[in-house]
Amino acid sequence: MIDTILFYLGIGLLFIGGVMDIIASIGFFKFKDFYTRLHAATVGAIGGGFYPLLGVALAVMGLDVDLWFKAVFSGVSLITAAIIALGVPAGSHILARSVYRSREVEPTVIADRLREDLEGGGSN
């Protein structure tokens, strides 16, 4: 019983991950600006990278195989998911910061508090 629930929960997470990847790639075409595309990239990385790995871990735990097999596969998936969850925000933060500081792309925004503070020195 619990095995079946784990297996289908994992398969469901894998399916959600695939859908999220497709939506993220559509978002890359729809958004025109570097910074807004970063948000689509986050959807692809967390929804399409982190959750499918959790799904693999859960689905393997529900399979009818040896315990060492379950331990190796779900352990590796969980550790990789943790590394993704820690590495992705560092990567997108450093991309955004370096592009902003080098003025490679000017953001199309309705308000830019960082530029105000960097150049004006005033605060409100």
Binding site: L38, H39, A40, T42, V88, P89
Partner: peptide, 28 residues
């Protein structure tokens, strides 16, 4: 906190000012 903000789609931390204690966040 910065990782939590960046990991949710829709918000990305662009810069941190540790003296004045501000995050500068690009919000879609």
């Amino acid at each position: 906190i910065a990782n939590s903000i960046t990991n949710t789609p829709g918000t990305v931390v662009v810069d941190v000012d540790e003296d004045k204690k501000f995050f500068y966040v690009h919000w879609i």
